[in-house]
Design a protein around this nucleic acid. Structure first.
Lengths: 215, 215
DNA sequence: ACCTGAACACCGTTCAAGT
DNA sequence: ACCTGAACACCGTTCAAGT
């Protein structure tokens, strides 16, 4: 935290805001305080500025969320699709995808439901789709393979990070077994191993399905 | 739609609102216009009443969402856990769970991320957990079995209903393969069959895992 | 071009006034 | 007890005024 002089009325001698800085501050805010804490007012406050000033750099709040999406996607690794077999590359991508969302769980409710309007994200999907297609997958199956992987990840991340919060009132509200199970399950290692198992299982299933599709 | 006389200032001779009526109207609103359309103002309007009046019956907006959760959960079928083997009951429950959320897709973003504070939902989980435990599953695995099933469902429902909206700009933003795949995949029947296959696969995996756990 | 301050419509919520 | 109308703090967004 730095103390900053209040800005005077007119244009500052050097710009105090930038698109990248706004997006970075927004992600920080969401990481620290959750998706609901991201308001234009609080984001501006964190940047030492008025809410209205943000609109000189971003068109609206939805575009701030797409900036956040870019930062999270940029942490993923889809490079293996360039030169490795599709199943191996899919495994590398899925693990990095999961790791990125574990670092930024609070972004999930929004990023998993808002329409994607962010070029880097589409670039990533294009590379993944090309890799799968070159691996022999028919066009009609690509979207389904992707959603299978993505929602396995979503489930795993929420299981890893949010299950306790989601079902926090299980004990007092008539679900003692669920409460006990969540309590006893709480080591991170378990969730990680469960993901590895589930991903390996999915990859086995996908290889079998592909063999069935192209005899 | 019925034309209603504007209400006068004081207490009406017969109550015009009820908790059940508010929850039902809220679910209708979300089904028709999406989660963002649920505001206390628009909900009140639909009920022919002022927003402030709602607070005589519900404590806050979050409790309205929990009322919606109850209505969706009430459409699910967990009766088979009473007298059928755990894997069969899990299959029946999962299919009814999926069908309920397909009828109410717009509720998913909120219901899947907001903490559960609704007794019927916990009752359902308790019955499911008891059924699994009686089937031989150790307490430590219950939460993971549940999340595996739930996120398979989430993935399938979003694939079924929302993939086109989510990736609507794929074609113009550099992901032509993804766009083509979503277009070519669009028959509902495919998504249904894919879910049946995936669920059967998951059940096979779970039976194997249970056998490994209790030799 | 890039900031402020004031304004707008809307949001969830509270509460005194009225029957 | 149960509705209205007025009020509150907050929200996203616009825009004229200022440098």
């Amino acid at each position: 935290m730095c103390v900053m002089a209040a800005l005077r009325r007119g244009r500052p001698s050097r710009p105090v805001l930038s698109v990248a800085g706004i997006h970075a501050a927004a992600l920080e805010l969401v990481d620290e305080q959750g998706a609901a804490a991201l308001t234009m007012g609080r984001l501006a406050e964190r940047l030492g500025v008025q809410a209205a000033s943000l609109y000189h750099h971003v068109v609206d709040k939805a575009s701030v969320w797409e900036g956040i999406r870019r930062l999270v996607v940029a942490e993923m690794d889809w490079s293996a699709f360039a030169d490795r077999p599709w199943d191996l590359a899919l495994g590398v991508w899925a693990r990095s995808y999961r790791a990125a969302f574990i670092r930024h769980v609070n972004t999930m409710p929004v990023l998993y439901t808002a329409p994607v309007a962010e070029p880097l994200t589409y670039q990533m999907y294009q590379v993944v789709c090309v890799g799968l297609a070159e691996g022999g997958w028919p066009e009609t199956s690509l979207a389904e393979v992707l959603s299978a992987v993505e929602y396995l990840i979503a489930g795993s991340v929420l299981d890893h990070e949010a299950l306790g919060e989601m079902f926090g009132r299980a004990a007092e509200m008539g679900a003692p077994l669920l409460a006990a199970s969540i309590r006893s399950r709480s080591q991170v290692v378990v969730a990680d191993r469960a993901f590895d198992l589930a991903l390996d299982g999915l990859l086995i299933g996908l290889r079998a399905e592909l063999a069935r599709l192209q005899p």
